[in-house]
Amino acid sequence: MDNLFWIFISALLINNFVLAYFLGLCPFLGVSGKLDTAFRLGLATTFVLLITALCAWFLNTYVLIYAPYLDLISFIVVIASTVQFIEMLIKKFSPTLFRALGIFLPLITTNCAILFLAISATNRGYGLAEGLVFALGAGIGFTLAMVLLAGLREEAELSDVPALIKGTAMNLIIAGILSMAFMGFAGLFSST
């Protein structure tokens, strides 16, 4: 139980996928203009992460022991089909959200956070429960980072920023400061 909690906190705060591992930066910088959209993309990504953890465990246990060199290809195929499925779901249930997310919805496929999750769960030899908790922590951590940046960007829209800095450069510097703040969480646990 202790171990599961540690995996969760580590993925959520200390090794936050976005701010410490630089994963999923494209949606992080691209879709963080509005708080609401950012939050929902975070949730969609969390869902894909959970499904991927499940599939990765299945593939690792039953398929990849016979053909380890196929891991990348099979993971990416599973991720691509999950994303396709979610895209159809969102299109059916919330067309507004579908339009707001735009190109970044199919791009969840190329969100490296998801592939990284599958690979590192494999490398660390996580079982099913550990993998799912890891995915949940990573997903919530991703959502948290997205929401924080989106909130800051909404504020920055209203303030008087020099035209030169506006855009990606400012977002990166904000992200850098956020990342510094998250480094403080490393002190939560004295032993790794």
Partner: peptide, 9 residues
């Protein structure tokens, strides 16, 4: 990690 964001910015 923060250095990466700041430098690229």
């Amino acid at each position: 990690p923060p250095g990466g964001f700041l430098t690229l910015g």
